[in-house]
């Protein structure tokens, strides 16, 4: 038993010292390194994927670039730390990434149990169902007895069980590992229904030869707020990530785009002037340069532009703004004021 105790104790000591080191200013580390390391996924349609030249693109990647533009003044100074659903939090907590922009649902256990800090929601998602039109199903309560393709080990599996139990319905689960597998199974008719986050359903549907013969049912059975995360215990770094996200949303509210950015510098709206660093000292208070938000919008545009470029209706993914519209347009995207 004794050697084991010694081992356990040394692990604990090592863990504590690492934790101590990690809290010593992520901002300074990033500035010293000159590169921002974002924990991203190994590939989610529209959110993170490499192009033919190996350059990472997507909705989450653009937010990573926005962060790099704010902190380092250069959106190209990013490094994508690819992670799977299983390794994303350990990579972040072990200090191998500075911030996580990875299609990650904010939950109680991740915030409290995994000891992360979440900084707002950059995409409101929710679990939905896709069926073939030929089935004649128009709402989810008609799915009693259906065979359903579902990814194992995800929150969607639990949501599905809850939903069918609550409605007194039965289903046959066809468990699959990846989105591709689900696509093949669904097309070949092994399952009648495919369920996953609505954004994923839209992306999958866009790859069919006959997308018009499939519909996504109106019911959304879960809340999946996706947002960025950092390690606990670095308040300054947390503030930066929070306000990078807020800056993109505020910019959309105020109508600041990549195109009119420079003319907005002479706007009459004091909040616009504060955001763009013409007045006030908000960048400096964050530990960044005065024009941090200007750099963000110059690099990737406002929230709406990021959305439309990567996953909006004019992309192959073709997502509506829906819940992700500004609060002024009936959506949920709302930020505290820059004051």
């Amino acid at each position: 038993m004794r050697p084991l105790n010694v081992l356990a104790a040394s692990v604990a000591v090592a863990a504590l010292t690492v934790a101590g080191a990690a809290s010593a200013g992520t901002l300074d580390d990033v500035k010293a390194r000159g590169v921002l390391r974002c924990v991203v996924s190994t590939g989610i349609a529209g959110f993170a994927y490499p192009d033919a030249n190996g350059v990472w693109k997507g909705f989450d990647i653009d937010f990573c670039r926005a962060t790099a533009a704010a902190v380092l003044g250069d959106p190209t100074k990013i490094k994508a730390v690819t992670s799977t659903g299983k390794t994303r939090f350990t990579l972040l907590n072990a200090g191998e990434g500075d911030v996580l922009w990875r299609n990650t649902t904010i939950t109680f256990s991740r915030d409290v149990g995994v000891k992360l800090r979440f900084h707002g929601v950059n995409y409101y998602d929710g679990q939905g169902f896709m069926v073939k039109k030929a089935l004649g199903v128009t709402c989810a309560t008609q799915l009693d007895g259906a065979s359903i393709c579902i990814q194992t080990g995800t929150t969607t599996e639990l949501n599905l069980a809850d939903y069918f139990h609550a409605n007194g319905m039965k289903y046959e689960a066809v468990t699959i590992e990846t989105n591709d597998e689900a696509r093949q199974n669904y097309i070949s008719g092994r399952c009648d229904v495919y369920t996953t986050d609505a954004s994923g359903l839209a992306a999958t549907r866009s790859t069919f030869t006959d997308p018009d013969n499939h519909i996504v049912l109106p019911e959304i059975i879960s809340k999946e707020p996706l947002g960025p995360a950092t390690r606990q215990g670095d308040a300054q770094w947390s503030d930066i990530i929070t306000w990078v996200l807020n800056a993109t949303i505020t910019a959309e509210e105020k109508g600041i785009t990549q195109a009119n950015l420079d003319s907005m510098k002479s706007s009459k709206d004091p909040e616009v002037l504060r955001l763009l660093g013409v007045e006030g000292s908000q960048g400096v208070e964050l530990g960044l340069s005065k024009d941090w938000a200007y750099n963000i919008i110059k690099a990737v545009g406002n929230y709406g532009e990021i959305f439309e470029r990567n996953i909006g209706v004019n992309t192959p993914i073709g997502l509506e703004r829906g819940l992700n519209a500004l609060w002024t347009d009936g959506g949920l995207q709302y930020t505290p004021p820059f004051r």
């Binding site: 996924s41 989610i44 349609a45 529209g46 993170a48 490499p50 690819t82 591709d180 992306a203 790859t207």
Partner: peptide, 11 residues
């Protein structure tokens, strides 16, 4: 797999 996430080619 990562390339399959590119909506231009996915599927």
């Amino acid at each position: 797999r990562a390339s399959l996430a590119d909506a231009v080619w996915a599927g």
